[in-house]
């Protein structure tokens, strides 16, 4: 007979696959076994698999100290009839026994997500997006400096952004390590750097659109939506990396669930804006003349249009 043994960790992830052949396959910690289990709770000669008179494969406990349990932690005694795919605990060791003809599911497509994360994983990508993010932070700081430019302050804020991103990447890496034994630290970091770049791009674009269209609903709403999509995308990528869940539906669902609190807080803050405020809320988008293509309307027209605020103030009551 020929059998495949799948050794798993306690979470059920396969660590190792071994093939054994012979009329009698012995399992134990001793080096003379066919299947050697390096676990202190396993006896030197723990169990054996034989064929009984009817040709049925049976697993027999060799009077081991810690015995044999099924996957539901029920102790098994006597010859245990086994079928392909059944799983047992020998001491702490977890063992799945498979027939060579045991069916396997068809191969999954690697998918765009795999390609995308592989692209992110490249050293050139990681360095590239990090440099881009840092440059954007510096540019933003420089464009908002109206007194003397102080490198000290700018570096401080740069380090705080990079440090925070690194911290978050570490958490993701830790999750990945636990779940899949894969850290992908630098890929997680790259995802966050893309997020930083995306944030600056969105805020710049929304200002330029805002100064030309003057619709705070359009710019504010669209910017918030884009930011939400960006954050959800980053979350989905990191989740994919950390779990390597090949089923697209599952990790999209997980990312969606994780995005709910973000969406919730966005909705809450927009409801919060409807609370009473002494300060008016209006479109504050202003940009350099070179970014403005729209021209204005005559003053009289503005005065006429502005009449809407009186009825708007009344309706709200």
């Amino acid at each position: 007979m020929e059998l495949i043994f799948e050794l798993s960790n306690r979470a059920g992830h396969a660590l190792e696959l071994r093939r054994a052949t012979g009329d009698r396959i012995t399992i134990g910690r001793g080096y003379d076994n066919d299947i050697i289990l390096q676990d202190e709770t396993v006896d030197a000669q723990h169990a054996v698999i034989e064929q009984d008179a009817d040709g049925q494969l049976v697993l027999i406990d060799l009077d081991s100290r810690n015995g044999i349990f099924d996957i539901d932690h029920q102790r098994q005694s006597g010859p245990i009839p086994i079928s392909s795919g059944s799983e047992y605990l020998l001491g702490h060791a977890r063992l799945r026994i498979l027939d060579p003809a045991h069916p396997v599911p068809p191969a999954l497509r690697m998918g765009e997500m795999y390609e995308f994360t592989r692209l992110l994983d490249r050293v050139t990508t990681v360095v590239g997006v990090t440099v881009l993010a840092v440059l954007m932070i510096w540019l933003e700081a420089w464009l908002n400096t109206f007194a003397q430019f102080r490198w000290q302050e700018v570096l401080q804020s740069t380090f705080s952004v990079i440090g925070t991103a690194f911290g978050i990447a570490m958490v993701w890496a830790l999750i990945g390590k636990v779940v899949r034994h894969e850290t992908h630290l630098r890929t997680h970091f790259a995802v966050l750097m893309v997020l930083v770049c995306g944030y600056y791009v969105i805020s710049f674009v929304s200002t330029v659109v805002g100064v030309n269209t003057l619709s705070s609903v359009l710019t504010g709403g669209t910017a918030a939506l884009l930011l939400f999509v960006l954050v959800t995308g980053a979350l989905a990528t990191s989740l994919y990396l950390a779990t390597r869940q090949p089923h697209r539906r599952r990790w999209t669902l997980a990312a969606g669930i994780a995005a709910i609190p973000i969406l919730g807080s966005l909705v809450l803050s927009s409801i919060g804006n409807q609370d009473f405020s002494e300060a008016p809320s209006y479109n504050t988008d202003i940009a350099a003349p070179v970014l403005r293509v729209a021209s204005g309307i005559p003053g009289d027209e503005f005065v006429d249009e502005a009449q809407e605020v009186f009825s708007a103030a009344a309706i709200e009551e």
């Binding site: 405020s277 209006y282 605020v309 009551e317």
Partner: peptide
Amino acid sequence: VTNFACHDDLVQS
């Protein structure tokens, strides 16, 4: 008082 309602535009003069 109610909240402020606002109207924005570019005015050319």
